[in-house]
Every structure is written in C-alpha cells, then in structure tokens.
C-alpha cells in the first residue's frame, strides 16, 4: 500500500526539496501551493500525512489547521507544520490548534524524515 503525503507549500524550491526527500522514502508526494482552497484539497486527497506551511497566500496555515481539526474525519490526520517565522507564540498557537509536530525552517533533512516516519508510525499503530 502506498503512503501518500500532501505538501502545502508556496515556495517552489522548498517543495522540490521535500518532494525529492520523501519520494526516495517511498512516499507518493502531492503538492499544493495555495492556502485558500487547501482544506478542500486535503479532504479530497485523503493523504496519510500533511506537511503544512504557515505563511501561505490566501489563507494561513494556522487557519487551515483549525478548520481541518473541526472536521471529524480529519481529527486523527498527522499534520507536520513548518514555519519560517521564528516566534514561540506560533508554536503555542499551533499546539493549541491540534498540530501533530511543529518545525522551524530551516530544517535538516534528517529531522524532516524522522518526523515523517514517527508520525506515520504513530498513526498506523493506532
């Protein structure tokens, strides 16, 4: 069974880097660069994992996270959040909104891979 990750990120270069990393790990990587319709895209794609940027055009990652967690089917979905804003307030907000893992850019590739593995393992164990 193939694992599907949905990456919501508006920086093309970062998207490309993560796609490269996760594809080599055996993930099927789908990407989306706009915040405005991100919730619908996620719901429609039914991914095993979501990687979500905070600063997105149209709608912020924080709002997308909140809206997702409102939905019953999306409450257990592992969500890894990435932000380039270096504020601890963001981490608190994200944790309150139900994020699974929160990481600050720039990250090391190993970090991202470990986080993705962990989250996926947790989700499948449940």
């Amino acid at each position: 069974m193939s694992r599907k990750v949905l990456l919501i990120e508006d920086e093309p270069n970062i998207t490309e880097a993560i796609r490269f990393l996760l594809t080599r790990e055996g993930w099927q990587v789908e990407t989306h660069a706009d915040g405005a319709d991100a919730v619908q895209v996620i719901v429609a794609a039914q991914p095993d994992l979501v990687i979500l940027d905070v600063m997105l055009p149209g709608k912020s990652g924080m709002d997308i996270l909140r809206d997702l967690r409102e939905l019953k089917s999306m409450q257990a979905l592992p969500i890894l959040m990435l932000t380039a804003r270096g504020q601890s307030r963001d981490r608190e907000m994200a944790e309150n909104a139900g994020v699974s893992r929160f990481m600050t850019k720039p990250f090391s590739n190993t970090e991202v891979l470990t986080a993705v593995r962990d989250l996926h393992a947790q989700a499948t164990r449940l």
Partner: peptide
C-alpha cells in the same frame, strides 16, 4: 517575524539542497 520569514525561506532551500 517578517524579516525572519524572508531570511529563513531561502536558507531552507539552500540547506535542504546542500544536504541532498
């Protein structure tokens, strides 16, 4: 916070690709 974003975003790509 804006400055941080503007600096970290290119740095993220640089770090990710250099690690790759």
């Amino acid at each position: 916070s804006q400055v941080s974003h503007e600096l970290r975003t290119p740095m993220t790509s640089i770090r990710a690709f250099s690690e790759i």
